[in-house]
Each structure stands twice: as C-alpha cells, then as structure tokens.
C-alpha cells in the first residue's frame, strides 16, 4: 500500500511540471503580450505612447525574451522563493491578488458542493425507491432539464425571474455597502458571512452552480440505487424480514454511494471549471472571472498561477480518489493501475 502511494506521489510531480509547461505555452499562444494589449487600449483612448518607454517596460518585465526563458524564470522563482510573479493588470503580486478572492471562492465552492450532495443524494434515493412514481418522473425530468440548460443561461433566467418577482436585480455577491467596506479594508471577508443580505444574494449562485452537479449526482445516484436494489442480497434480506428502511439505508446506500464519492475529484474541478462563465454573467468576484480577465488582458503570470493552482487541486483530488479506491480494491493496489 505504502509503495503504491509513493509511486503515485512520484508521478504527481512530473505531471505538475508538464502541466505548468503546457499552461504557460497555451497562455502565450495568442499573438502579442500584456503590453501590446495595454498599448492598444491607450491608443484607443487617444493617448500617445512613447516607443522607447515601451521598450524599457518590455525589458523590465522580461517580455522581450522568448517564452520558454520566461517560463523557466517563473518556475525558478516559484520553486526557490514561492514567488508567483507580478500581476500587470491588478498591479500587485500575483499571490496577494488571488488571496483577495480565494476565501470567497472556497466558501461558494463548499456551499455549492454541500447543496449538490444534500439535494442530489436524497432525491436520487427517493427516485430509485419510488421508481416510476409521479415524484420520480418529476425529479428525473427536472434533472434532465438541469443538465440540458447551459449554466450561464440558467443564471440569467433566474436573475430575470427574481427581477420580475421582487423588482430588484441581484447582481454580484455583495451590496454596495459591503463592497466599499471590503475595498477600504474596514471589513473582513468573514464578517460578510454573518450578514443576512449576503446569504440572500448567495441563493442564486448556489442554485445555478450547484444545479448541474446536483443533476449529475441525482442521475448517477438513482441508477446506482436501482442496480443495488435489484441484487440478490436485497431479495435475501427481504426474505429474512429485514425492514425496507434498513435495506435501503444500511446496505444499498453504502454500496451505491461508492462511485459518487470516488467522483469527488471530478466534482471539484467541475465547480471551478463550470462556474466560470456563470460567475462572469452573475458578476461574482471569484477566482473564475479573475482568470477570464487575466486571460483577456494577457496577464500571463496571474492566469498561469490560477491555472496552476486549479490543476494542482484537480490532480491532488484524482490522487486522493485513486488512493481511496486502492484502499477499497486490492486488485488495483497490486497491479498499480486503476481498473476502469
């Protein structure tokens, strides 16, 4: 077991290195760099740009060097000094820029994950136990619709709905008062969590970002439960007079939960990944929209770091779920390969 984990951890490092290289390559793929898009913006406003000044700026940021030189410098600073570089767009070190939105991102992700499981699993169980009932049909239909509507459009629909019902449009996570407080530093992010208006505004993002995951959980939960309920051991338990409640929750649920739990890493990546466009539409100050801004402005160190952190979390999640699977299934442990 220890050997298996060691082997996986060792492959973890080259994957991260290759990934960082791929990320950096992809980010610099669009023509131009941050300065060219910045200068284009200045020129559009009618300002005159001094070419010699531009060259000195280029030299200072190291933008005149080829991309792999930039990459190695960046990587070297990360490894030796834990320095992720400087964000051109936000004019601050990358790490503090990300840190300003990270807590809220984690809060939103955790709450949506909680929503996902708290809603998806019970409904999935209900649907399976009452297969082909009216409730089952309703939930299955909602589940399908939830998977069919692109998340970001669902966000718009919900915002439109609340606008019609309440007369106010909920845009963004914070009220203007809170926003000012956060910007001036008179308020900390954990103080925001205690406010009622924040949770009111959280409702739509949670529903929107949570839904697609929830619908997936619901469907897989239902299918797994149905599989388990048809097994012979259930028949045997029934014949012995075990109560239906005990059969469902003590035996079937445990077996049916297995794939859902091992899919945890996928859910993590999905919340980061799938919520980006929704978060842009809903104007949430989270990591996703920041990444989008950074990519648009070709702010390569910021974008690169965000992607690297995301990738790190996802690879970590896969590793953890692999280890969990290996604990459960000795065949995987011995072959050292994940059985599909």
């Amino acid at each position: 077991m220890g050997q298996y984990i060691l082997k996986r951890v060792l492959t973890f490092i080259p994957i991260l290195l290759i990934m960082s290289l791929v990320i950096f390559f992809i980010i610099q793929l669009p023509p131009g760099d941050y300065l060219t898009s910045y200068v284009a913006g200045l020129k559009a406003e009618g300002q005159i740009v001094d070419e010699s000044e531009l060259d000195s700026l280029k030299e200072r940021y190291g933008l005149d060097q080829p991309w792999f030189t930039q990459y190695f410098k960046w990587m070297w600073n990360i490894i030796t000094r834990f320095d992720f570089g400087y964000s051109f767009k936000f004019e601050a070190p990358v790490w503090s820029t990300i840190a300003s939105v990270l807590p809220m991102t984690i809060v939103v992700s955790l709450v949506t994950m909680l929503f996902n499981y708290l809603v998806g699993i019970p409904i999935g169980i209900y649907s399976a136990v009452h297969q082909y009932s009216i409730g089952d049909y309703c939930f299955t239909f909602i589940g399908f619709i939830g998977m069919a509507i692109p998340n970001f459009l669902f966000a718009i629909l919900l915002m439109y709905g609340t606008y019609i019902w309440t007369g106010t449009a909920f845009i963004g996570l914070y009220t203007s008062e809170v926003l000012v407080g956060l910007q001036q530093g008179t308020m900390q992010w954990w103080e925001v969590l205690g406010r009622g208006d924040f949770w009111g505004r959280m409702a739509i993002p949670i529903i929107v970002i949570g839904t697609s995951g929830t619908c997936g959980t619901l469907r897989s939960m239902r299918a797994q439960m149905l599989d388990e309920l048809g097994r012979n051991y259930v028949l045997c338990a029934r014949a012995k007079g075990v109560s239906e409640r005990r059969i469902v929750y003590k035996y079937c649920l445990r077996a049916a939960l297995n794939p859902t739990v091992s899919g945890l890493s996928g859910v993590l990546s999905h919340i980061f990944n799938g919520s980006t466009i929704s978060a842009i539409v809903m104007n949430l100050q989270l990591v996703g929209p920041m990444l989008y801004e950074a990519l648009k402005a070709q702010d390569m160190y910021l974008a690169g770091t965000i992607l690297l952190v995301m990738g790190f979390l996802i690879v970590l999640g896969t590793l953890l779920s692999d280890i969990l699977l290996a604990c459960l299934d000795p065949r995987i442990r011995f072959s050292g390969r994940r059985a599909e």
Binding site: L291, Y292, A303, G311
Partner: peptide, 14 residues
C-alpha cells in the same frame, strides 16, 4: 490526465 485537469475556458480562449 494533464488535458483533463486543464479547465476548458483557457483552452478555448487561447
């Protein structure tokens, strides 16, 4: 694994 762990948005953008 590497391709899967990259979010699709930056890939599209780039």
């Amino acid at each position: 694994e590497v391709l899967n762990s990259l979010p699709s948005l930056p890939l599209w953008m780039a």
